[in-house]
Every structure is written in structure tokens, then in C-alpha cells.
Amino acid sequence: MEHITHLLSDYVLDLLPAEARGQVERHAAACSRCRQQLQRERQLTHLVRETMLAAGHITPLRLVQLRPPLRQRHQPWFTRQSWQKGVAVMAVCLFLFVASLSLHPTYNAHWQNGAVPSVIAATATITPLPATATQTAAPSPTSTTPPQQTPGAAATPVAFLWPR
């Protein structure tokens, strides 16, 4: 009797045409060796499924906690939890701040006199830039530093420019 071992995987994966399926079923009914092999193939499929169900279990409570808010479906991307986004925002802030210093003659003079207090002030002092740039420079959600006003510069706290 010619065994059909080479067809068994395709059989359990439903990859065989009807004729070959029939061939496998007829042979397995008569051959215990191929029947056992077929059983092992089925077990693997079953095991993977069971493993996925067990490993990927999540409680209904957790699912509820993760549900996106419906009333604020247009939630701004920067309010979602991710520290990388926070770091990216900080980097943009820093870049805009440095760029504004090098472009603005008054700031340049201040900088050379050491008048700008700290880099952290960037979160609050980017008024000379256009409105689009100011929106991009939202402070990190993880930042706890309160916005500081630079003396002499007509600074606008960025928070007021956020769409609510």
C-alpha cells in the first residue's frame, strides 16, 4: 500500500482539491499509520489555537479600560499614552527654540548676554513662529515643568493655542 504522508499537512490545512481529499480519507480509513500521522497534524492545529486563546486572554474590564473615548473621537494624537511621542515633541520644541534664537535678532542678543534662563522655557516661548509651528510644539504629556515666561518677550503659553 502506498502511504499518503506527503498529503496530510495539506489535508489539515484545507489545501487539497476535493479529489485528493477523498483519496486521503479513504486511505486513512484503511491505514493505521497514516491515520495516526493525520491525528498528529490535527493536534498541532488544535494546539496552536488553544495556545493563542490562552496566551491572548484579556479581561473584559481591561478591554473596557482600553476602549477609545467616543465623545472625543477626534482626540489629538499627542494626548495618547506613549513616552516616545513625548520625547519627539520635546525634540521638536527644542529645535524650534534653537531655530527661533538663531533667527530672531533680539533673542540673539539676549542669548549672547545670557538672558534666556533655560532650555525648558522653550515649552512656553515660541510666539514669534507661525501658528502651525506653535501647535506642533506642544509640550510633552509627561512634562511636569510649568511654562515660564521669558522677561521682555511677549510669550503666549502654548496650552492656550490647543484646540479643545
Binding site: M52, L53, A55, G56, I58, L63, L66, R67, L70
Partner: peptide
Amino acid sequence: GLLYQRLSPLIYRLNYG
């Protein structure tokens, strides 16, 4: 809520896998 309730476990399991 109904859509989320029905489909979120499937999507979560796929993501986790």
C-alpha cells in the same frame, strides 16, 4: 460599544500573537 465588545477580543488576540 457593541462593535467594540464583539470585536475587540479578536483584535487584541491577533495583536498579541
